[in-house]
Design a protein around this nucleic acid. Structure first.
Length: 509
RNA sequence: GGCCCGUUGGUCAAGGGGUCUAAGACACCGGCCUUUCACGCCGGUAACAGGGGUUCGAAUCCCCUACGGGUCACCA
């Protein structure tokens, strides 16, 4: 069903009113749990939220969902914030920057949740459950064995005060469960998927407060989104089924619901949810492998969303102008590394030399081609290399692969074919001429070298190939590569001399 | 397995019943440029999962099947 443009849909009318008429400020949030580095899929969710907010002059919030004390870490939180900033996704409210609906870390909001819990408890919409994990696990086993859907059986639904006392005396620490009403159809309105229905009977009474007193995700997220006046919840499709539970909570608490938008998953090459075995999954990994943030943003935006026109290259600002939720698709997208590399290469080619030099330096240091301290001379050197190889790079890191070409003076022809090129009868004359011309040259600027190269063909009355190929192979050993007039300036006269005499001794007839 | 979502070329995707003989991008192939390769430019191959309906007419609406995915925690 093509719900995206079903204007008769009441929900959609409301949505349009909000999005385009600004009767209400758009407030969105990205709410990661700090249990690992920012995932590429999370980054896309954050991006879509950000784009929707900025497009509508709304607010983007960053909330940290750290209720899993076992797995949450401040390193992960830092990683997530760093990655977001690196991508250019900033937040108007939230952790670190504050705001009037704080605090923005869930563990700092425990007293806020308590109010809502008490309300549910006193209205009988939630109850304490004393079952132990082992008991529940056993139950689930049995249900599975019988071919049933594992679900909480409701043992503690109607405990008498006596029973409760007994359990407490045993030292059992209760969880609090939400009493899921039976026989109801739960309707989830989703901006990308339309109306999705769930049966409440398919959902067991779920835990809203853990035995350590900390609320679970499904509960905290509802309270926070309400308290923080979130208008649109854009998140991954894996949350779609959770949304049913959350809707139940919104209803029980008598809170109005935000607009939900569940974006489909990003898949690996084998079409399963992207995970480590598909390669890099976190934003930092792309960063440390020489991807540019604007390339990642551009690429991610195109996964699941499409612009109206035919342009494919967008800056963040352009994306903000163009973005709209009704152009987000429902079907999952395979992460296409080839296209990412192409986009990245595009941005590398269109960046300034200086910027690529800055980005390249750490990779060159890591590979041992540069010391910790990079002086002006070295920087110049790198700059010439970047100029020579820039349009062949799809990641900045790849510059490392070209370094041997500029360093190692013991040139060996890469193949039989290359060797043959060196053994033509004109070769030694070509190399002699090149050498003397370079020695006499006023400078070795690329433009000048280009002229010199050209003049050799004229002077010796030789075809270009007979001149260029031997020089290329003598100087680099390879039959293809960056322009010779870019390579020679990097080498300098000394290295050219060295390489030519080495080749003469070893490979010329 | 239950529930939920999805299915247009190898991949991302446009598409709102006739204008679809189905856009664009990546990849691939060919040509031009460059006396190399790359970049750039031009061109080409390649798709509506299958079956039923509805309709004068379906990629588009409905149903079924198949396939893929997600989810069924005191994780988020």
């Amino acid at each position: 069903m093509n719900v995206r443009r079903d204007y008769s849909n009441i929900f959609y009318k409301n949505f349009l009113r909000e999005e385009y008429c600004m009767s209400q400020e758009i407030r969105v949030r990205f709410a990661p749990s700090p249990t690992g580095p920012l995932h590429i899929g999370g980054a896309r969710s954050a991006l879509f939220n950000y784009l929707l907010a900025k497009k509508n002059n709304g607010k983007m919030l960053l909330r940290i969902e750290d209720t899993d004390r076992e797995r949450s870490s401040s390193e992960s939180e830092e990683n997530i914030k760093d990655s977001l900033k690196w991508l250019g996704i900033n937040w108007d409210e939230g952790v670190d920057v504050g705001g009037e609906y704080g605090p923005y870390r869930q563990m700092e909001r425990l007293d806020i949740y308590k109010k809502y819990i008490d309300k549910l408890l006193s209205e009988g919409k939630a109850y304490k459950c004393y079952c132990t994990e082992e008991e529940l696990e056993k139950q689930r086993e049995e249900q599975r064995a019988r071919g049933e859907t594992p679900r909480y059986a409701g043992c503690c639904r109607d405990l008498t005060p006596d029973q409760e006392e007994k359990f407490q005396a045993q030292g059992r620490r209760p969880v609090i469960r939400f009493r899921v009403p039976g026989g109801e159809i739960i309707r989830v309105d989703d901006a990308v998927r339309g109306k999705v229905n769930f049966e409440s009977d398919g959902i067991g009474d779920f835990v809203i407060v853990k035995s350590d007193g900390i609320p679970t995700y499904n509960f905290a997220v509802v309270v926070d989104d309400h308290e923080m006046k979130i208008t649109h919840v854009i998140r991954g499709e894996e949350h779609l089924t959770n949304t049913a539970r959350q809707v139940l909570l919104y209803e029980a608490l008598e809170l109005s619901q935000p607009t939900f938008a569940h974006v489909s998953l990003i898949l690996g090459k084998d079409r399963s949810k992207m995970s480590k075995r598909h390669g890099h999954t976190s934003v930092v990994q792309y960063r440390i492998n020489g991807f540019l943030p604007e390339a990642i943003v551009n690429f991610l935006a195109l996964l699941g969303w499409s612009p109206e026109g035919e342009e494919e290259i967008f800056t963040l600002d352009e994306l903000i102008k163009q973005f709209s939720l009704d152009r987000v698709v429902k079907s999952p997208a395979v992460f296409d590394m080839e296209k990412l590399k192409w986009i990245n290469g595009y941005y590398i080619r269109n960046s300034s030399i200086e910027r690529i030099v800055e980005l390249a330096i750490p990779f060159l240091q890591e590979a041992g081609y540069l010391d910790e301290n990079v002086d002006e001379e070295k920087r110049q050197w790198v700059s010439m290399i970047v100029a020579a190889v820039r349009n062949r790079l799809s990641t900045v890191r790849e510059i490392v692969d070209y370094m041997e070409l500029f360093i190692n003076d013991e040139i060996k022809p890469e193949s039989e074919k290359a060797l043959k090129e060196l053994q033509g009868e004109q070769v030694s004359q070509v190399l002699e001429t090149l050498l003397s011309k370079l020695q006499e040259a006023e400078d070795l600027e690329p433009e000048n070298v280009k002229k010199i190269l050209k003049s050799i063909t004229k002077e010796l009355k030789l075809g270009g190939r007979k001149v260029f190929m031997p020089i290329r192979i003598a100087l680099t050993g390879q039959m293809s590569g960056p322009e010779m007039h870019d390579v020679i300036p990097v080498l300098g006269i000394e290295k050219v001399e060295k390489r030519i005499s080495y080749v003469k001794e070893n490979f010329l007839q």
